[in-house]
C-alpha cells in the first residue's frame, strides 16, 4: 500500500483529500491534521501487504 507517513506525502495527501471531502481547512488546521494523519498512515503501514485480493474484506458474525 502507498506509504503516506512521511510529512511531505501526508501533507500532499491531506491538502488534496480535504478538498475532496469538502473540508475548507486553514493552514494551521492542515498542519494539525497532517500530524494526526501521519499517525493513521503509520497504522496502515503495519497491515500485511500480501493479502489475497479474493479475501473477503470483513468477517461474518452470524451465529
Amino acid at each position: 500500500m502507498t506509504d503516506l507517513s512521511d510529512a511531505k506525502s501526508a501533507r500532499r495527501y491531506v491538502e488534496a483529500a480535504a478538498v475532496a471531502a469538502g473540508l475548507d481547512l486553514s493552514e494551521d488546521e492542515v498542519s494539525a491534521t497532517v500530524e494526526q494523519f501521519q499517525i493513521v498512515a503509520r497504522l496502515a503501514a503495519q497491515l500485511p501487504c500480501d493479502l489475497a485480493d479474493t479475501l473477503e474484506p470483513a468477517p461474518r458474525f452470524e451465529p
Binding site: 500500500m1 502507498t2 491534521t33 494523519f37 499517525i39
Partner: peptide
C-alpha cells in the same frame, strides 16, 4: 478535533 479530521480522510484502500 484533528484526529477526527484526519480520520475523515482515511483512504478506502486502507
Amino acid at each position: 478535533r484533528y484526529r477526527l479530521t484526519a480520520a475523515a480522510l482515511t483512504p478506502a484502500q486502507w
